[in-house]
Amino acid sequence: MTFTNDDKSKKRLRHEADAWVRLLASGRATDEDARALQRWRAQGPMHRAAFEDAKRLWRDFGPAGERLIAQAAANAARPTGPRMNRRAFLGGMAAAASVAGVALLAEHPLLGGWTPISEWGADYRTATGEQRTVRLREDVVLAMNTQTSIEVQRQDGRIDGMTLLAGEAAIDAMTATGGLFRISSGAGRITAELPARLEVRRVGERTCVTCLRGRVAVQLGDQQRTLAARYQVDYGEDGLQAVRAIEPEQVSAWRDGVIVFRNTPLPDAISEINRYRRGRVMLMDKALEGRSVSGRFPITRMDLAITQIQQAFSARVTTLPGDIVLLG
């Protein structure tokens, strides 16, 4: 059997693409790794196709990966013997992620180990579990929740707005004497009439806008809603939704260092836990998807929420290297 140069090239690209996916699945990729990956993919359509094939392979690996999960966990916990090399460790972790049904996408970090490409232009950013307060100008204070990226907007050298690239932010401009503060999030445009206090949350392609004081206009295409205090609206691919009343204490609980669940569907609660906790909690039992959870938890102790969920539903918890928790 003979191999052409084209066959050898495809084989080499498959090996390289597989190595990239394993690195992403490990949760240890850095921003520099992400930039290197994009340079690798930009070399041509064969590189991009090889990477897509590698993602599908690991995503669809299925139950057969359980053996690799057990092996990776055993090797990580082994007190003596030869140290597990990087290639073997990344391979085991990639299998763990694929069994949980997680899509390995280059544009989105799997375990919070590196910043998505879409957020590289951020002026301000918070890491997983981190909160930060920034004074954008003398009359506008910005509070940033976990996993948040902000790009400021300027006009004539003065900050007059911002773009929420991801995460959750509170804007307090109650000392302002007038004017507007504009926010972009996804395909929507948000305009606050100052003085005002508002919060904007963007997770994926969905944005939620909450008005706490003042008046806020939200526009998506030719649709528009105006919010008064204690009202919010959200938008996404399904358009701009109806305005609804809210309880500020629950919506703004993150500013006090807690998250509040009130009959929150379990999958939504786990998604929220994953925003504050490094690693990944994965719901494995579909029978639990219809359950809901209530409680108030410090954002610095998300494992308390996992313990309550475990006890409330008698769920089995399996802990894997890399702060991965399989629930159910």
Rank of each mutant, 00 (worst) to 15 (best):
K8R: 12
Q38A: 10
E107W: 07
R59C: 08
D234Y: 00
Y235A: 02
G322R: 05
R255M: 11
T146N: 06
V21Y: 11
Q232I: 03
A50G: 11
A196R: 06
M46K: 14
A42I: 02
G295D: 01
R301V: 02
Q308V: 15
A196I: 05
Q38T: 13
R244K: 05
A34K: 09
R158K: 12
I69R: 09
L327F: 05
E107R: 15
A229G: 03
E66C: 02
V218H: 00
A95W: 00
A49Q: 12
V99M: 01
A143G: 11
F313M: 06
G112V: 01
V203P: 00
A192T: 13
L198N: 11
V218R: 01
W40P: 03
A315H: 07
D53M: 12
D60T: 09
R135Y: 14
G188I: 01
A64P: 02
Q71Y: 08
L240E: 00
E138C: 10
A106R: 13
W20M: 09
I159Q: 13
L90C: 10
V140C: 06
A229W: 08
P248K: 03
A229T: 09
L212G: 07
I117C: 13
R197S: 12
D160A: 15
R182Y: 12
G204Q: 03
Q38K: 06
T4Y: 07
R158I: 12
A70F: 01
W120H: 09
G157Q: 04
E16G: 08
E272C: 01
G112P: 04
I309M: 12
R275Y: 01
S118I: 08
V21W: 07
G295L: 00
L165N: 01
A217E: 11
R202Q: 06
D303A: 12
G65C: 03
W40F: 09
A54C: 12
R316K: 14
G157V: 02
F181C: 07
V134L: 13
R230H: 11
I324R: 08
R291K: 15
L326G: 10
N85S: 10
S294M: 06
T300G: 05
A269M: 03
D53P: 03
V200M: 04
I69H: 03
G204P: 02
R137D: 09
L240D: 00
V243A: 00
K11Q: 14
R189W: 09
A228F: 05
R202N: 05
Q241S: 06
L288A: 05
T146M: 06
L24H: 05
R48K: 15
A127P: 02
D7N: 11
W120Y: 08
R244H: 11
I309D: 04
T300L: 07
I69L: 09
T226Q: 10
S118T: 07
R137Q: 11
R189G: 14
S184N: 13
G112F: 01
V293R: 04
R213M: 14
D60M: 03
A72R: 10
V281G: 04
V102A: 08
T177E: 13
N274F: 04
D18N: 11
V21N: 04
T115G: 14
G204Y: 03
A88K: 14
S185E: 04
T177V: 14
V141P: 01
A49P: 02
